[in-house]
Each structure stands twice: as C-alpha cells, then as structure tokens.
Computed example of a mutant assay.
Amino acid sequence: MEDRQLETHPDLIDPEWRKHAEREARLGAKKDLKRRRKQRPRRRLRMTRKVVVVLFVTGTVAVLGAATVVVQQMRGSSDPGQPPKVAPVVIGVDLARPYDRTPAANWSEGLAGITVPPGQAVGDFTAQEVDAAYRKATEAIAAARLGSRALSGDGSELLALLTPNERARLEATLTSAPTVEKGGYLTLLGTNRLLPARPRMTGFLTAKAGRKGELIVHASYVTAYAFDVRPGEARSPVDIVPFVRDEEDYVLRKAPFAKGDAGLSLGASSGFTSRMACDAIKTGVLAPQYADKSAPNYGVPAVDEAATYDPTKPMPTRDTCR
C-alpha cells in the first residue's frame, strides 16, 4: 500500500522538482569527486555515475530525495583483472632487527632462553640446594657469555664465582691476552662491536649426582650475537650473527670436600662455533662472518643448521673453517 502511495507522490511526478533534485545530485557528486582527488592525488580513478532515487522509509513516514552514486575502481599499473604483483624480497641487513631471518629469530634474550627445571632432590642435595646450584650455573653462563667484562676480555666476573682452588687454577688463563684456550671459557670480542640488540639464547639445564657431596649441573645451550656493520659489508643477517654452542658441566661441591673446593668448579666442556670469521676464531676471538675478508664463506655450518643450533641434538664435530 505504501509503495503505491510513493509512486503517485506529487513530488515524484513534478518535472520541476525532479530537475532540481538531479541538479543538486550532480553538484554533490562533483564536490565529492574533488574531495576524493585531493585525498588520493596519486591514484587513478575510473568512475561510473548513476542518478538514482534514494528512498528512506522510517515507520510510515517516507522521505524522498535524489542522490548520485559514485562507483570507484582503484587500478594499479597492471591490467584490469590481473593479480597484484608480489612485493620484492628485501635483501640486506636490518640493524634494528638483526636476528630476523636467522635461526635465532624466535629465541629469547639472554638467560630467558635457557630452560631451568624446578629444583628436585638429587643425591646428597636437597631441592633447595639444587635450585641454588641452578642459579649459580646460570650466573656463570651470564658471566662467561653475556657479561660486559668477559666480552671485553676480562675474566674477573667468572673467576669471582669459583672456589678458591678453581680460581687459582684458571686465573692465569682468564686474565691473559686473548687465546684459543681463553676463548673456550669466555666470549671474546675483537675490534668488531655488538649492536645494542642483546644476545639471544636457547638451551636447558639438567642435574645429576656426582661423588658424595657433589652435584653436576649440565648446561646445553646456544648463544647468538648481533654485530654492527657498515653499509655494504654484509649481504644477509647471517653475515653479522655468529653462533656459539656450548655443552658444559658446572660442578657444585659441599662437605665432605674441603673449604677450598666447596662451591662452584668448571667441569668437562665442548663447543662449536659457526657463522663466524675463521681468521679471528683461530686466535680465540669471535667476529662476524663478513669480517673474514680472505674467505667470506668460512664459518658456514657443514651440516644442517636446524640440528647445529638444536641443544637436544648431538654436538657437531666437523670444523667449519675448512
């Protein structure tokens, strides 16, 4: 019933009113077009205009008006109907996100990447003592691999955590100039400097009983370091991110051991370094792969990288500096 009343509404059949409505609609469309062109000056618009009668019905009251509908189709440089082109892959290094596109992309910063189990009684050690042993082991890891002193060649922070007898055994090595032996205990940096991005780690701790009064905390972990670089010196993130993998035993002793041996000592260890500069690592210093000017492909893992950086997998044994 309402539709029939609207079709015979006086305004719809009045030619003067319809001319006025169409003129107002065209003016509104031109204003709208100018506004859109100002907002998107670099896009090309293909437009189709249709004059229609827009009808709004609220309850039993009908409001009539004329409007112009503008259909816009955005077009790129490709032909209509063609899929959009895929953005090119960015090549190079993003110093703000240096770990992107490396195995360490999803690792946590520092010690947060090392899983520490809840303390449980092991051998002669209570759950609380095992917890304390885990903390002591992570302190030693931080002092050796993350501490600013160690990175500058100063082993005093690690030495301070050791028993008196262990300190005396290692003091000459950890206070010497850089050597391969010293580089086995500490991460030593040369002239190449790290980016502000903190080193990333992945790994875990376990504990087992040793001799009477002895607890062995085993650490299996990998550390990734992001080095600064000048423009053009690195082709991809792996050129600035070397990896240091460690298997280390931290030995905690108490009575019946003598006072000079009570506390933390360093046990058996092994390591593997990759994506580094070989000429530097041969002197005990860690440097990024791009710094190896004479052999830029040295330091590349000789085996699958996923296994190389997985602490649950066997330690690689093949020398990457071939």
Score class of each variant (00 low, 15 high):
P103R: 01
Q82E: 12
A140D: 09
A177S: 13
V130Y: 07
P288A: 09
T191M: 12
T273S: 11
K38C: 01
W17K: 06
L12R: 05
Y134I: 07
R322E: 15
R211W: 04
H20W: 00
E214I: 06
S156H: 10
G153M: 07
V238K: 07
A87E: 06
F56C: 09
P231E: 10
A142N: 09
I141A: 13
I91D: 11
I91C: 05
Q39Y: 00
T115K: 07
D239P: 15
R167I: 00
R26S: 05
D3G: 01
R97V: 06
K259I: 10
E157F: 07
T138R: 03
T163L: 10
K282I: 01
P117E: 04
V222F: 12
A295D: 12
A137R: 05
L264V: 05
R318D: 13
A66M: 10
Y99N: 03
D228A: 15
W107Q: 11
Y250S: 15
K293Q: 08
V70W: 05
A295C: 09
I141V: 15
V54R: 14
L161V: 10
D79G: 11
V57N: 14
A219T: 06
A168E: 15
A133S: 14
T175A: 09
S220M: 09
G92R: 06
P231R: 15
S148V: 04
K208I: 13
R235V: 13
Y225M: 15
G260N: 14
R75N: 07
V53W: 05
K212I: 09
T48S: 03
K31I: 01
R253F: 01
K136W: 05
Q73G: 12
R49I: 09
E171Y: 01
A25Y: 02
K34F: 01
A127T: 08
V54H: 12
A287M: 02
D131C: 01
Q82F: 03
D100R: 00
N192W: 05
R97D: 11
D131L: 05
L205V: 11
A172Q: 11
S265D: 14
D249S: 12
S108D: 11
T68Y: 15
L158M: 10
K212N: 10
T202G: 07
V229L: 08
G190Y: 03
T223F: 05
T126I: 02
V53Y: 04
T60C: 13
M1S: 11
Q72Y: 12
K313I: 00
G210V: 06
L64V: 10
G210H: 13
E214Y: 04
A307N: 06
K50N: 09
L189P: 11
V122Q: 03
R101W: 02
R275I: 03
S78V: 02
D94M: 06
Q289C: 03
D100Y: 00
V70M: 02
P296Y: 03
P80V: 04
R40H: 08
R135Y: 01
